[in-house]
Amino acid sequence: MGFKLLSKLLVYLTASIMAIASPLAFSVDSSGEYPTVSEIPVGEVRLYQIADGVWSHIATQSFDGAVYPSNGLIVRDGDELLLIDTAWGAKNTAALLAEIEKQIGLPVTRAVSTHFHDDRVGGVDVLRAAGVATYASPSTRRLAEVEGNEIPTHSLEGLSSSGDAVRFGPVELFYPGAAHSTDNLIVYVPSASVLYGGCAIYELSRTSAGNVADADLAEWPTSIERIQQHYPEAQFVIPGHGLPGGLDLLKHTTNVVKAHTNRSVVE
């Protein structure tokens, strides 16, 4: 069995187990497998329904001669939608809004960016022009300005110390501490036991640490421990890039980060 097929099978099995364990909360999309990078042309966006009122959005972007996937989250909030992270750029984010209108038909009224990198804030200006209120932590807003990236308009308070959590509509926002970046936030959907790890969490097929220019490698494993301790009931975990899975993604990420750190020390 090929690795790609095995990865998709694991996603399907995880979703099936969740649907059985929580039949009222989960209505997993039966329309197909989780979209992969090879299936999404740059400039297009796919939506994948995880649970009743919960979707991931998947886009792709060219970077350094390669094409990478990027995940975000959409959560229903009454007759409105909360968006977590842009679709990595203005063109993708405009396509995301169009796809949401086509498939869901509810307005996106608020959006949260989970850290300051372009795959999370690139497209904020498109959201703002569409009347979406954009939010991020003060740290993310400051770092985005320093980096020359787009800056969300509103500040999220109460997320300055490791372990801080605040309720934001249908989700809980959690600051686990520094990891992929010093400002990275985690998003949890309690009604569906869905954990969105953003770039602080890796997919299972990833074996290298990737972009760690703004990471705190020493603190990252401790931050992941905080996530595990705060959300032990999480059933569906979405990484910032690639295929979702279960809580095993947290341990896998820790292993990859520690291996990278150990290699760096040896070198």
Results as ranks from 00 to 15, higher is better:
G2L: 13
K4W: 09
L5D: 09
Y12E: 07
L13E: 12
T14K: 13
T14H: 06
T14R: 05
I17R: 04
A19W: 08
A19K: 05
I20P: 15
A21F: 14
S22W: 14
S22V: 10
L24F: 07
S27D: 08
V28G: 10
S30V: 09
S31F: 14
P35I: 14
I40Q: 07
G43P: 05
E44R: 07
V45I: 05
R46F: 15
Y48R: 06
Y48P: 06
I50A: 08
I50R: 03
I50N: 15
D52Q: 07
G53I: 09
G53P: 08
V54G: 01
A59Y: 03
Q61F: 05
Q61T: 09
Q61L: 07
Q61A: 07
F63N: 08
D64C: 03
G65N: 04
A66N: 05
Y68H: 04
P69L: 06
S70Y: 03
S70Q: 03
G72N: 01
G72F: 02
L73P: 03
L73G: 08
I74D: 02
V75T: 11
V75N: 01
D79R: 13
L82P: 03
L82V: 14
I84D: 00
T86S: 15
A87T: 01
W88S: 00
G89R: 09
G89T: 14
K91S: 13
E99V: 13
E101Y: 08
Q103L: 13
Q103F: 10
I104R: 00
I104A: 11
P107W: 11
T109G: 13
R110F: 03
S113T: 10
H115C: 00
F116Y: 15
H117R: 00
D118N: 05
R120Q: 04
V121N: 01
V124G: 08
L127W: 02
R128I: 12
A129I: 05
G131W: 12
G131H: 13
G131Y: 12
A133K: 12
A133N: 04
Y135T: 01
S137Y: 03
P138T: 11
P138M: 15
P138S: 14
S139D: 14
S139A: 12
L143I: 11
A144P: 03
V146F: 09
E147H: 15
N149M: 14
E150Q: 13
T153C: 06
L156K: 03
E157F: 12
E157Q: 15
L159F: 04
S160G: 14
S160R: 13
A165G: 12
A165M: 10
V166P: 03
F168T: 03
G169H: 09
P170V: 15
F174I: 12
G177R: 01
G177W: 02
G177D: 03
A178W: 11
A178N: 11
A178M: 12
N184P: 02
V187I: 05
V187M: 04
Y188I: 10
V189S: 10
V189N: 03
P190G: 09
P190Y: 15
S191Y: 12
A192R: 07
G197V: 14
G198H: 02
C199F: 01
A200I: 08
I201G: 01
S205K: 10
R206A: 12
R206Q: 05
R206D: 07
S208E: 13
S208H: 12
S208M: 08
S208W: 12
A209R: 07
G210Q: 14
G210D: 08
V212T: 13
V212S: 11
D216L: 09
E219D: 11
P221R: 12
S223T: 13
S223V: 07
S223G: 12
I224K: 01
E225S: 12
E225Q: 15
H230C: 11
H230I: 15
H230A: 09
I238F: 07
P239S: 06
H241F: 00
G245T: 02
G246I: 05
D248V: 10
L249F: 02
L249V: 10
L249S: 02
L250R: 00
K251V: 13
H252Y: 12
H252M: 07
T253D: 00
T253H: 00
T254I: 05
N255S: 06
V256H: 12
K258N: 07
H260Q: 06
H260W: 13
R263F: 04
S264M: 12
